[in-house]
Design a binder for these strands. Sequence first.
DNA 1: GCATATTTGTCCGTATGTATA
DNA 2: CTATACATACGGACAAATATG
Lengths: 238, 238
Amino acid sequence: MGSTESGTESPGGAEATLASDRVLLARTSTAERVADILRTRIAEGLFAPGSRLSEEAIGGGLGVSRNTLREAFRLLTHERLLVHELNRGVFVRVVTVEDLVDLYRVRRLVECAVLRELGAPPYPLDGLAAAVAAGRRARRSEAWRELGTANIRFHRELVALAGSPRTDELMRGVLAELRLVFQVMPDTRGFHEPYLVRNDEILATLRAGDARRAETLLASYLRDSLGELSEAYARQLA
Amino acid sequence: MGSTESGTESPGGAEATLASDRVLLARTSTAERVADILRTRIAEGLFAPGSRLSEEAIGGGLGVSRNTLREAFRLLTHERLLVHELNRGVFVRVVTVEDLVDLYRVRRLVECAVLRELGAPPYPLDGLAAAVAAGRRARRSEAWRELGTANIRFHRELVALAGSPRTDELMRGVLAELRLVFQVMPDTRGFHEPYLVRNDEILATLRAGDARRAETLLASYLRDSLGELSEAYARQLA
DNA sequence: GCATATTTGTCCGTATGTATA
DNA sequence: CTATACATACGGACAAATATG
């Protein structure tokens, strides 16, 4: 290349997959769209935890410059999906058992507090109901990964009851990390399916206006879930 | 400068303030140190809320390239200290009343939950005691801004009792935003001083092992603080 | 409403320092 | 210890959007 003189072809030099999108619906920044792509790939397990993401390989593959790619990396690093080591690059996050425990500590702290701080019933439970319905649909079509997504959504909706954007964002991050954890579970169905019922139970309890009991149910829910996951971790290391 | 030919002097081409630091103790990345500098300036009110941070002005002043500066901007944007408007640049965050309310909603949710989830006494209260002591020193030397910093530190230490890195980070961000809010208070002393006593009271209650009562004290503390701040906001808009 | 100037968005090429084989 | 590979940071260029007259 280098038609004119020094390397200054055009910003549209990214003629691969992204270029078309960019011209058509350049609504978000390029970096954000790159981050979206990488986020999906990580969530689907295409990048193994601990593997390094080479700037050159990824950037070349997607047809974006290193600068733009680094901005995408920065976004995902703040979401804790990647870790950045100085002068070494970025790696797909490896969630340790300590992380797992902390994740559930935050969940217990925040989710239970949300239920406790609820005012008087009735509560706006449409979001929770929709999440449970999505879970049922996923179970019917035996889409177990989607079932996991629906379960996560249930807890996001639950936190949303607090009406706090910052709390929402916090839990968005926490639950995104949780997705990384779920990948260690060998039996996706056996892990996710029981919790659909328990989510429904919590929803029914809230409908009845008993936020206090819902909190108790949630606490034991989280305890059991953490127990299963840490057991799976122990097995994996053995 | 420009000894050789094309603009490629050396990464140390930034011969201003940053260069020396970089050579001496380049422990963190340049972008992070730039972010540190800007964070301090914002906290000290050198940049008025709502004002635009020109890439050229700041970058030129600090002697860093635009790319590096933009990375620093990205960091601070994620901390909610700056807001980014597409094709318009970055601006110092203007905290609205809604933000203020949400900030205190999160504080109430998290800080109170931390106290509630404490196990059996005694608790490791050294950090809290140190924060109160720092507040006393600041009061003695009439350094009212430092007093505010010490009060903020008290609440960070309080959250640290939960032993959760993620919760710590959350509150770090929330309290950094709070610093922006504090700048609207005209009477720094009158606002911060009373809370030093109340922090001390909470500490004493925790020393006595009564986490439950400490939670009640904290709740009213937060209620009063929010009341004062929103009143100041209302006055400012009038 | 239009033309111009300024600023941001994106990308390239390259030199240097650091970590690792 | 040397060599290689890579991230870091720089400057420069042009397109697009915004601000200004």
